[in-house]
């Protein structure tokens, strides 16, 4: 019998990095569902496509760095990065936008600093910021929510993402457009009468626009909290009036 010499504690919990990351992924589900409900399968496609690119990039880079790529992939951190980024991108964003964003996040946000745990900034937000500065038009081209326009099916979605420009029916007037072009009506009347501001689709628009106007800093800290707040805010007309929107 040989004696093993290790230091305390000898017992350890069941925690794994992968289980922490898995929990984060589960926590994004409600937000993803809301986005999908309003905007159709675009967000889901973002997440799946971005995830594939991210995993492939992470695999290649860790292999190049002489680490075990399977260990790097299995901690699921790369899926958290790509999912957070892809939620923040507009649904039906062109494929190259997703590719550039994900590559930036994985390469410049994470791997150049030494990979998991050594990144000074949130890699997903690094990718997001680079995209927003470089491609403001594509980054602000949010589709119309359900209720104002037809939400595209899967086929249309794929065509829109991978062959951008072939479909142009998914954008419509936004509430901000409505306010800009409004000349006679009081805000209260607009709020109760215009289809863009009422009902299912209108609320969806509020959520997106309000989130961008008011809670962007929060989004950096916690995308889910930010979506939840946006949702609450959009359902409260008094809050809206208080902020003169």
């Amino acid at each position: 019998m040989s004696l093993l010499r290790v230091t305390s504690p000898h017992a350890s919990g069941q925690g794994q990095v992968s289980s922490v990351m898995r929990d984060v992924l589960i926590a994004t589900l409600p937000g993803v569902l809301i986005l999908t409900a309003y905007f159709g399968p675009g967000t889901l496609l973002n997440i799946v496509f971005g995830g594939l690119i991210a995993v492939a990039t992470e695999y290649a880079i860790t292999a190049l760095r002489g680490r075990d790529p399977r260990v790097a992939i299995s901690d699921l951190s790369i899926l958290v990065t790509s999912t957070l980024l892809c939620i923040a991108l507009p649904p039906y964003a062109p494929w190259w936008l997703i590719v550039i964003g994900v590559l930036t996040a994985v390469l410049l946000g994470k791997q150049v600093f030494g990979g998991l745990g050594y990144n000074p900034f949130n890699p997903a937000m690094v990718g997001y910021v680079v995209l927003l500065i470089s491609f403001p038009v594509q980054m602000s081209a949010w589709a119309s929510p359900r209720g104002l326009a037809e939400v595209p099916g899967l086929g249309d979605t794929l065509r829109h993402v991978f062959a951008p420009g072939t479909i142009d029916a998914v954008t419509a007037a936004t509430p901000l457009d409505l306010l800009r072009q409004n000349t006679g009506l009081l805000f209260e009347d607009l709020l109760t009468n215009s289809p863009e501001l009422t009902g299912w689709g209108g609320i969806g628009w509020f959520e997106v626009n309000l989130a961008f106007l008011r809670w962007r800093p929060l989004a950096v800290v916690s995308p889910d909290l930010y979506l939840a707040c946006a949702h609450r805010y959009a359902r409260c007309p008094r809050c809206l009036r208080a902020h003169r929107i």
Binding site: M1, S2, L3, L4, R5, V6, T7, S8, P9, H10, A11
Partner: peptide
Amino acid sequence: DGQQRIIHGGPMMGFAVS
């Protein structure tokens, strides 16, 4: 038989006996 850890104290704060 083989490797064995003998801990003096408990699993949280004890030390392995040499």
